[in-house]
Amino acid sequence: MRRIIVIAKNTFKETIRDRIMYGILIFSLLFLFSVTVIGSLSLGEDLFIIRSFGLAGIYLFGLIITLFLGASLIYKEVEFKTIYIILSKPIKDSEVILGKFFGLLTSIASTVGLMGLIYLSVVWFNGGGVDYGSILAMILQLFEFSIIISILILLSTFSSPIASTIYTIVIVYSGHLLTLMLNYSANLGGFQKYIVLGAYYLFPNLEKFNIRNLVVHNLNITQTEFILAMGYAIIYTSLALCLAHFVFQKKEF
């Protein structure tokens, strides 16, 4: 456990020092401040625009940061041969994977937290009070990101950062369109239906973490939905990390 924490700390420091992340983060904060101006163009629907654009911004910028930082996480260690130094010490492969995962998740959580604070202040200054629903939306967003990070780690064990990024973008898009796939499968028959259904259950269903469209209308999901979404994220993340560990073990360093 202690070794996982040490690797996680190092990963956190490494990612938090990344200049690309600062660039994106500054841009995202500027965007969050500017949503007030965008809101003022909406004929009195300022708060709706601020909340929907703000939450969309936090999601998209968080996703970009996750992709930039996550895609090269393991690949860089192998490419720069620093993995030899780590593995020459009494550290298990699984501890490296878990340390990397928790380190990156912590830095992503910090950036989302920072963006969230700015967003909540902007909403508050515009008369929206404390936006509890959006806090819940951001928590669920972090669970979604935990799945994305684990997939990135899995992909970065065997492919280049660019390829990992492209695969992950495809997976994220598919993950948000799976409900359409399920509807489509209802019109199919026989073997095709089972292939589509197989893909439906196998791909990460990310739409369950998207409550942004509800919270902007002051609607909330039930406690059961929230717990099921969290459980799904934990199980899916564990699956992707186990696969990453399996691939990592098979690699010859």
Partner: peptide, 14 residues
């Protein structure tokens, strides 16, 4: 729109 329907709707409205 990656499930960001409300934001897309807001953008189209503006």
């Amino acid at each position: 729109d990656l499930g960001l329907h409300s934001a897309a709707s807001g953008l189209m409205w503006i």
